[in-house]
Design a protein around this nucleic acid. Structure first.
Length: 608
RNA sequence: GGUCCGGUAGCUCAGUUGGAUAGAGCAUCAGCCUUCUAAGCUGAGGGUCAUUGGUUCGAAUCCAAUCCGGAUCACCA
């Protein structure tokens, strides 16, 4: 249990005993004590003054006495300033915590809880390569999955590939018309980029045709309808739906190019999936459900035989779920897939990592599932994240301002190479080690940069800032880790106990100090306090589905360590007791950094 | 127009179950490498928490109104 929880419980129990009324943790507030006051944690007593009709001082004195007397293992002393009861946690508590956990690589993680969660993320279109926005999605999805695992959930990562539809046909038509049989191999182009080029070519050709038709006297609307290339594309979509062999062959061929390209990118950025759904397989799902919905009168049919749901009572609009020609719309297959996911895995929760532009759509989806009485409908959760904008404004493909994912990764890795070479600290690395290090730092910087911001918020991508490796960045945290590992390599490893997850309750008689009498310097204590908070940070990140909680925390921990490191020597500590204590401190810090960065999908180097 | 989200230092962001003098990083300025990795540390300056009103012992945080920005409201996906 965290010290904050302990304090809340002890305070509630203490108040109940002292004042003969029942109190719970909600009746008062516990905060970390502000640095300008003495103490570690603070009970705010203003809310108690009214119910008890006593002064702060009276309450504070009685409660402070009670806590220090009855829980000396937690609290050593207290002071009262205005309505704030500041408690000092005893050094013995901190030291004991350090002893028990300093070499536990699973510190902060929970045992399996038997619950199953699906995290759907990434979900690309097969007509263009991944861009910066996809990166935020991928990093978020992967990290949230890790955070859920650390919190005891079994996680199934899924991906729905948007591999069919009019937009896919656009790049197919353009390839037929303009490629002269060119392939990724023949042009030496990565498959997804290759296909993306034809998607662009389609739009150029289409625009040209429309302009010409408009110049010939048509209205814009007419021109858009009559454009030959668009008509050909629509015909191709029909041919695809009818299974016309040469169209299917072309579709398969071009998609396979895209997948080959995606595989490379996914491998590079670390995305992976337990199950991949393809829209070409799922787009007919949900049609049966539409019929059932009609029978249940959740849906209704209009005269033209299109099928709708009326959501006006829920503050939304009417929504079509099946066209008059009997074909399904986007949301129909989503309903079908939602049910399939549940039937396939019996998941307790279904998380969708999708941008906030689809907030309305996801609200409608969940509402429909609920009205249909689907078993998992209440456990659909839309992890809605904000768009990534540039300092110059939004990314616009038409204006060519889209930041390509592969290019960005390459730039970040190149920058990390350049910085590393300038510093000249790794001259003895082999070529392979160097390459791995550049990847670790470059990708670490990028992931940290995108994950450090609250997912819900729109964020600005500043290229200069993103390649800064100082301050609140991934490389800063990685560097702190490498410094600690450098020290730990040099000191006697017997100062650390073996990993306590392997050998619980091991003999501590070889300790160089007595944990019950060891006193802590301020910077030592600050570091243990920070380390103690890691488990509750994982909890918070999990309930909020928010990796930025971890990013902010890990940065804070690293910063706290660096202050400690500059001020006090570990290897040459004043006494052997202090040396062991500090080695343990370094160890727990390194373990948490590695673990926390791992939750963000970021590797840490042993040396840099 | 309806609905939803946001507005905190020059810039990028924390902080919102209401608590003490609103915090980081970048940028600017001033210091610190013969001692465990200076991708580091220490310090300084920088704020009408969009505005106005309300709730109360106490509001960046809760409520209302207003202003500004964004998203969305397709027989597109």
């Amino acid at each position: 249990m965290s010290i904050v929880s302990s304090l809340q419980k002890c305070t509630a129990a203490g108040l109940s005993a002292l004042f003969n009324q029942s109190f719970t943790e909600k009746d008062f507030q516990v905060n970390q004590t502000k640095p300008e006051f003495e103490g570690d944690y603070t009970v705010v007593m203003f809310s108690l003054v009214k119910s008890l009709k006593l002064s702060h001082n009276a309450i504070g004195n009685q409660l402070g006495d009670h806590l220090t007397k009855n829980y000396p293992q937690f609290f050593s002393k207290y002071n009262i300033i205005k309505g704030f009861l500041n408690l000092t946690v005893s050094d013995a508590y901190w030291v004991d915590l350090l002893n028990k956990n300093h070499n536990d690589t699973c510190y902060g993680k929970k045992a399996m809880n038997g619950k199953k969660v699906m995290v759907e993320y990434s979900s690309p279109n097969t007509n263009k390569p991944l861009h910066l926005g996809h990166l935020r999605n991928n990093f978020l999805g992967w990290s949230v999955a890790e955070i859920l695992k650390a919190s005891g959930y079994e996680v199934i990562k899924s991906c729905i590939v948007n591999d069919r539809g009019i937009h896919i046909c656009k790049s197919m038509i353009a390839w037929q018309k303009f490629a002269n049989g060119a392939t990724p191999e023949s042009t030496g182009t990565k498959g997804d980029h290759f296909v993306g080029e034809y998607y662009v070519k389609f739009n150029d050709a289409y625009k040209k045709e429309v302009d010409e038709l408009v110049a010939a006297g048509k209205t814009k609307e007419e021109a858009e309808k009559e454009s030959p290339i668009m008509k050909a594309t629509q015909q191709m979509l029909l041919d695809w739906e009818n299974g016309k062999p040469e169209v299917i062959d072309l579709w398969k061929k071009m998609n396979s190019w895209v997948y080959a390209g995606f595989d490379v990118t996914y491998k590079r950025i670390g995305s992976d999936f337990n199950i991949v759904y393809y829209e070409s397989n799922t787009y007919l799902l949900g049609k049966g459900i539409v019929q059932q919905g009609l029978d249940k009168k959740v849906f209704y049919q209009k005269e033209d035989s299109s099928i709708w749901i009326d959501l006006t009572a829920d503050g939304l609009d009417e929504k079509i779920v099946q066209r008059k020609d009997g074909t399904s719309v986007y949301i129909t297959q989503d309903i079908g897939l939602a049910l399939q996911k549940y039937e396939q895995y019996k998941i307790d929760q279904s998380i969708y990592v999708i941008g906030n532009e689809q907030n309305y759509h996801m609200k409608v989806l969940q509402l429909i599932c609920q009205k249909l009485g689907m078993p998992n409908a209440d456990n659909i959760f839309h992890l809605s994240y904000g768009m990534v904008e540039l300092t110059t404004g939004k990314m616009k493909s038409r204006e060519g301002t889209v930041v390509d994912a592969d290019d960005l990764v390459d730039e970040m890795v190149a920058t990390s190479k350049q910085h590393t070479e300038e510093l000249g600290k790794v001259k003895d690395f082999t070529e392979t080690e160097l390459k791995e290090l550049y990847d670790t730092i470059g990708l670490g910087a990028m992931k940290f940069y995108l994950l450090r911001v609250d997912p819900k918020k729109t964020m600005v991508f500043n290229p200069q800032e993103s390649i800064d490796f100082h301050g609140f960045t991934g490389p800063f945290v990685q560097y702190t880790y490498a410094r600690i590992k450098s020290i730990l390599r040099k000191v006697d490893s017997s100062l650390l106990m073996v990993d306590s997850k392997d050998v619980p309750n091991q003999d501590v008689s070889s300790m160089n100090y007595d944990p019950s009498t060891m006193s802590l310097l301020k910077l030592e204590k600050d570091l243990i306090i920070a380390a103690e908070q890691y488990p509750s940070m994982i909890e918070q990140a999990c309930t909020e589905h928010n990796p930025s909680v971890i990013a902010n925390y890990v940065f804070h921990l690293a910063k706290t360590f660096n202050s400690f490191y500059t001020e006090h020597s570990i290897a040459n500590a004043e006494t052997s007791a202090k040396k062991q204590l500090r080695v343990q401190l370094a160890s727990i810090t390194a373990n948490i950094i590695k673990s926390g960065m791992g939750l963000l999908g970021i590797a840490v180097p042993e040396r840099m």
